[in-house]
Design a protein around this nucleic acid. Structure first.
Lengths: 341, 341
DNA sequence: GAATCGGATGTAAGCGCTTACACACGGGGC
DNA sequence: GCCCCGTGTGTAAGCGCTTACATCCGATTC
């Protein structure tokens, strides 16, 4: 029972246990350096007072927080959820706490969140995609904060990253689409501005079209934010074209499902009248009818390995390597074959 | 250009600008208390050195962080996503940063996350649902951290909260289901242990059944974690019953969609052969076919008001009031009428 | 022109913790 | 019995910041 009603400090505990603050601190941080008897006494005092260390003070003195920050573009749809969940689980296993922030796909907001997390003592950061203001990379370097880029991988970028090659993945899907006989391709892409994943995916389609001997054509490209209804609107727009695409390839599953629903509302049968493809393989793609053909991304694996690697970087066991993950195509009902002409 | 390669401190800035640390601090925190000329000089120095305040130190000295913490049970499905997004937006508008953690529906993990957030200096906390270890509430009280409970509201609980009455909401839905002619009701509930929302919803169904003069019966109740496939498994289980339910009411939309899909795989037509209802009105409920009858929760409104209110509590303008939000039923295709016998 | 005042700035005392270093003590080795 | 060593604790110096209080100085007032 103290006089002051404020939260107890190390010193209070020390006093109450009849030891020095150093001993209390040691009890908490390296218990084996304190003899059993003393330790018991201290721990009892901790308990009685309901003491919790003040993090700010601890950070200041020890320079480590065992906190990792992650900034993801959105929580509204499940794109990042599974990966982040796995990331958190693995971090937890290793004794780190994850703090998450969302940037709503806005670069300046992301920057703000990065600074917030860093100044709150994050030991390391997980960021989605390479593309951002070089300024902020400089800042992170200066602050000496290890950064791991996830959901992306590219040979051309030597920043440590874990993910897959968005361009190659989408190219492969597009190749398959073309092999299925499609020659008129509509594209609904995410906003490419400031989003390398989106632009790489788009490039993948363009590459596949350019490299194919079968003379496929891109009938139209619409960029739109990653939300269901936007996918629908874009789809409707593409279908206004006199010469309708036989397949609409979407930048992710959310857009694809939006397109799919709109198609059905417009009385079009998928895949008989038009095929639709997505990207990411989130649960939604499997759940809708017809199920959506998409690119499967190993979200859990990515999250888990990201954690392992980032921790290594934080603990100075690695300056950071890049890991490429393999994607696989999931050919489902929303993609149909076009009969030979 | 300093000799040391470490991050610059207030003192470095002060030295470089030829003023005291106090002046630098004032420049950053209350610029109008410093004369223009000096301020410019200081800001230039800040810029040149790439200085960012050390948060730990700042917290320790100032006792305020402008950080709010939120711990949500899961990010894997969209239940909390929209609300949290709105919460974050409103906080941002008011100058606060949101840090999120997920507890994976595990009370001990939640406790850990609460402590982590508090010790990292959260000024206030948003928690989902009332039910948790009293110990942790005591801890928060002792630490003097305002807590707002969201996604729940109950007259019987005087803890500040914002949300809706889960029991009454589900009761209303159940009443409608009964009015639609259903007499044999199957229930797929979330795990009620440690989750007051789940148990209140279950109670709502039981109340409606008990109070109805039409003699409806609950044919079976299965509790299962909130995941799609679990919903499917539970549905299959319920349908093994000789006397099959005519409607399966689910604890949330995720379970409902799982049940719906499984029904279709089993060759059952929804709603002709069996009706299905959900709760939450997440996007998924609207997207599947048939669309799912559910309880609409004003997620965005809840998130936004939660932010407003929690900030008030943090800023000592309110000791916290409780706000009840209105839910509405969304009667969609997955609920059919049973013809009079 | 002396007294007074107020605004701009400096001084320095913490905030709560960690940890290098100092110290005390008991037991072997000689 | 002396020296040395290792072990368990205590002492105290920061960590980087905010802020109450002290100080200075030019402007105002009479």
């Amino acid at each position: 029972m103290q006089a002051t009603r404020s939260t107890p400090t190390l010193e209070d505990v020390a006093k109450s246990a009849g030891v020095s603050t150093a001993t209390v601190s040691r009890c908490l941080n390296s218990p084996d350096r304190v003899i059993e008897n003393t330790r018991m006494r201290v721990l009892r005092a901790v308990d009685e007072l309901g003491y919790t260390p003040n993090f700010g003070a601890r950070v200041m003195a020890a320079k480590r927080t065992f906190t990792i920050g992650a900034i993801i573009p959105t929580m509204e749809n499940a794109i990042f959820a599974r990966g982040v969940q796995a990331f958190q689980e693995e971090l937890h296993r290793r004794g780190y706490t994850l703090l998450i922030s969302s940037s709503a796909y806005q670069p300046d907001l992301e920057e703000e969140q990065i600074r917030a997390l860093v100044s709150r003592g994050a030991d390391g950061l997980l960021l989605i995609g390479y593309e951002r203001n070089p300024e902020i990379y400089r800042y992170l370097e200066r602050q000496n904060i290890p950064v791991l880029v996830a959901w992306a991988f590219s040979d051309e970028n030597d920043r440590p990253s874990i993910g897959f090659d968005n361009c190659a993945a989408m190219r492969e899907l597009a190749k398959t689409v073309i092999e299925f006989g499609h020659r008129k391709i509509g594209v609904i892409s995410g906003i490419t501005q400031g989003n390398d994943r989106a632009s790489q995916r788009l490039k993948g389609i363009e590459d596949a079209v350019a490299n194919s001997l079968l003379d496929p054509k891109i009938m139209g490209i619409i960029e739109t934010p990653y939300e269901i209804d936007n996918g629908g609107d874009a789809f409707e727009e593409l279908m206004k074209n006199e010469d309708r695409p036989s397949v609409v390839m979407c930048g992710n599953d959310v857009l694809a499902v939006g397109a799919l629903r709109r198609a059905q509302q417009m009385g079009l049968h998928v895949p008989r009248d038009v095929s639709i493809t997505g990207f990411d393989d989130i649960e939604l793609a499997r759940i809708v009818m017809p199920s959506v053909t998409t690119v499967h991304v190993p979200h859990r694996e990515m999250g888990q390995k990201a954690a392992t690697q980032l921790v290594k970087m934080v603990e100075n066991e690695s300056t950071g390597v890049s890991t490429e993950l393999q994607i696989t195509l999931r050919i489902r009902d929303s993609l149909g074959r076009i009969a030979r002409a």
